[in-house]
Design a protein around this nucleic acid. Sequence first.
RNA 1: GGACGAUUAGCUCAGUUGGCUAGAGCGCACGCUUCACACGCGUGAGGUCGGAGGUUCGAGCCCCCCAUCGUCCACCA
Length: 768
Amino acid sequence: MRTAKNNDENKVVEDANERLLKPYDPSATEDRIYELWEKGGFFNPDICVKAGVCDPDAEPFSIALPPPNVTGTLHMGHAAMLAIEDILVRYNRMRGKKTLWLPGTDHAAIATQSKVEGIIYKKEGKRRHDLGREEFLKRVRQFAQESHDTIVNQVKKMGSSVDWSREAYTLDEKRNLAVRTAFKRMYDDGLIERGYRIVNWCPNCYSTLSDDEVAYQEGAATLYTFKYSKDFPFEIATTRPETKLGDTAVAVHPNDTRYREYIGQTFTADLGHGPQEIKVIGDEHVEPEFGTGALGVTPAHSMTDYEMAQKNNLPIVKVIDERGRMTKEAGSEYEGLKVKEAREKFVIWLKENDLMTAEEKTPQNLSVCYRCGKPIEPLPSRQWFVMVDKPFTITHSNIKGVENESTVTLKELMLKVVENGQIVITPDRFEKVYRHWIDNLHDWCVSRQIWFGHQIPVWYKGALDTTSTEDTREIYVGTEPPQGTDWRQDPDTLDTWFSAGLWTFSTLGWPDNAKTARVGAHGPENDFANFHPTSVLETGYDILFFWVARMILMTTYMLGDIPFENVYLHGLVRDDKGRKMSKSLGNIIDPLDMIATYGADATRMSLIIGTTPGNDMKLSEDKVRAYKRFTNKLWNITRFVAANTANFDQNTPIETAEIDKKLLEELSALTREVTGDIEKFRFYLAGEKLYRYAWHRFADEIIEESKARLAGGDENNKRSTQYMLRTSLLTIIKLLHPFMPFVTEEIWGILKEKDEKPLIVTPWPETR
RNA sequence: GGACGAUUAGCUCAGUUGGCUAGAGCGCACGCUUCACACGCGUGAGGUCGGAGGUUCGAGCCCCCCAUCGUCCACCA
């Protein structure tokens, strides 16, 4: 057995030496190396402890991988994310920390559902209601599974050292339990409420959206000036005439002398669909300079108008329905028409009746759905809301400045953990952005009218009175369905960010193992104690509000703790002209293509060097090619050092020459710098310094100068040179491993002593 | 309307708390198949660091103003 093993090892060395004679070939190396890591179990902190490469009491380091959406494939932004996080993870693992990088995927509710709906419609001409909920969900799950498999393969190709044994999915059983548990507790604490309010409604996606899912599109609109009826005392201006069929008031500025006298009076308007009571109200929000200075108040289809209606006790008339069509309240002539059709028809009517006095172009910031790009229709609807301003008593708090049993709001908690420094955001300018966002935060509408997602854990008994805005049914909220018959579960699902908000702890065994988990004990059942709060949350700045803020909300509330200590935000990856990569522009660079052509190491380096946190980066294939050359350079350096130190016996003592001491000290200084840079999230600097040192210092100068000494007759000088070269290269390889894991591991395999562990678990060079 | 970012070599970008002749990649010119490497080596050209002012012994870096491009947020119907 022993002989066989030795033969195997010798063969591996021979193969390696043979490979060393040719240029470095990533495609012949990377999969083999990844398999070596995976088989060794080095991504799993428990196995690292068992294998003795990590101290059982070592300080933990953990990252929850931002779960990619199962909507398709990974793009360069994901590649950047994986590269940065793998640097952190590998660095900390080499520093001896008990390191966990937990992978997973996100069901991405509305995005995935829309995608699959599109595919089915294109292929079969069917819509989701034609298939029914069960069949449709089956199709979505199948699609999600395929996307998942693609994604897992891509994550591996990048060299990500994630612990696959702990892989999670935002829509699997464990995460579903976490969601139900969280929902119930928030409901019991009064922080989740049902309400009939104005919501952002996308008629195309046929669902509500949160405020953050509303995007704005600049454009021009027509501003129409008209009167409600001939005898109405003044004119109003609007870009949405069709909504005026639902007006119940006109608002003017309280100090506007033109209209002041009318405030409080009620007029009867005639817009061709029956008498319409219009009350004149005063409101500070009205801009006297805009239009006529009088604003038609449509409480059902505008957030601000709704607020005015609340203040003034105005009736709410819904004239647009969920399909984006006019209701019967709009009048029989308009009922069933699309909004645009109704507008055209109503404009003609106004003209025919001599009520229209002006039409002019005006710039407009149109609200659109960030997913499908279609206009949003604000409308009143009965939905579930997370109450961000509602005071509650927090039982247990690890948050600095928040006592146990104190009364707080979700907003206050979210603000506190960043202001007290418990969570540090890099770059720090985003702390201001975050604060500003919270200042403007309203209650979070979490119910969605789609099928794919976590169905809301609420059951109703009895029939819904559709004629009333009140819901009088008996209600049950729980983690399990209620006993008895007649209970019907709420058909809606939760915003995908609700489950994503739990990610840092739902992946660590919460709620099942949260109470029994023990610090220092092995196994996933103890993860919650060992790895929460996580160390770093690394993601793109574009989901600071969507996700980062929601995680902070959920964690501070559910656990009275922070979800992570650091937030590192990277920029968006754009093409070499600064444009967003998109299918329609045809400028997408596929990470897999780059990896196939230049290797994962080169791809990673191209996404690290020359970029700064929070700033967008432009990527060109040239840049990737450049770092491919660097991997080859390292390979050639290795060939030189290996060939010139082949007969070097480490065990015979040598007298290190002064010059070599100096050179090694120079490298120690670099080690200290690079270590500091990584600690402070300056990967771009660390990477560039290593690049420059390896190529332009070590290869161009140190190796060149060593040639004479190696060829000279002074045996000790020669041995000292060999020692210096070998030691330097090994240090360079170690320092570069987090950045370029494959080529460095491969080189390590060639240079290391037989019984040494793989580079991935080799200690980081001394920094003193 | 508010906030933020960018503006450095032909192109894409670095430049960490202000400190010696401002760097990288790609591109360009010339010369090298030199015994680690042509995925390379050597030499070189190329920068008023957006503009104006200020602080300082010293500013690409700090302060003030301006310009251009971009992003986010709020929102006037």
